[in-house]
Amino acid sequence: MVQPDLSIIYDSEKLDDKGCNGSPDMIVEILSPASVKLDRWIKYRLYEEAGVKEYWIVDPVNESVEIHLLTDKQYTFKGVFTKSDTISVNILSNLELDLEQIFI
């Protein structure tokens, strides 16, 4: 079992007193030197198998966000975005994040 840094559950029907039933819609992991292999390989594969629709890997040292989107039960790489970019949250239409405001 793994613990994500941030889980977003868009479907309120998945929530009960114990937490989330099923997979979160989106997970964000924040890299640290000790978690690189865990986040980039082990959790990546677990979240893909579990059907997490959107997986972000945030690298605070390099001020970047790597985005993976679930398509046909496999993640597709959307790209790596840096402090100068504005990115969209795929599962939430009309929500954009200015990374310059995140990486202050």
Rank of each mutant, 00 (worst) to 15 (best):
M1I: 05
M1Y: 02
M1G: 13
V2T: 14
V2Y: 15
P4F: 02
P4V: 02
D5T: 04
S7K: 03
Y10M: 13
D11Y: 01
S12I: 13
S12M: 07
L15A: 13
D16Y: 04
D16S: 09
D16C: 08
D16M: 02
K18M: 06
K18I: 01
G19R: 05
G19H: 07
C20M: 04
N21F: 02
N21E: 11
G22S: 03
G22I: 10
D25G: 13
M26A: 10
V28F: 07
E29G: 02
E29Y: 00
I30L: 03
L31E: 05
S32Y: 00
P33E: 04
A34N: 13
A34T: 15
S35F: 03
S35P: 04
V36K: 10
K37I: 11
L38M: 10
D39H: 03
W41R: 11
W41Y: 08
I42N: 09
I42W: 01
I42V: 11
K43T: 03
K43G: 03
Y44M: 09
L46C: 07
E49C: 02
A50N: 05
G51C: 05
G51I: 11
V52E: 05
V52I: 14
K53M: 08
Y55R: 05
W56K: 11
W56H: 09
I57G: 06
V58C: 06
P60N: 06
V61F: 09
V61E: 15
V61L: 14
N62G: 14
N62P: 03
N62A: 14
V65L: 11
V65H: 13
E66V: 12
I67C: 09
L70H: 05
L70A: 04
T71Q: 13
T71N: 12
K73Y: 05
Q74W: 01
Y75G: 05
T76G: 02
T76M: 12
T76W: 00
K78Y: 04
V80I: 15
V80T: 15
F81Y: 15
T82K: 14
T82C: 10
K83C: 09
D85A: 07
D85S: 11
T86L: 02
S88H: 07
V89H: 01
N90T: 12
I91T: 09
I91D: 02
L92F: 07
S93W: 00
N94F: 09
N94Q: 14
E96M: 10
L97M: 11
L97H: 02
D98C: 07
D98S: 10
E100F: 00
Q101M: 07
F103Q: 09
I104T: 06
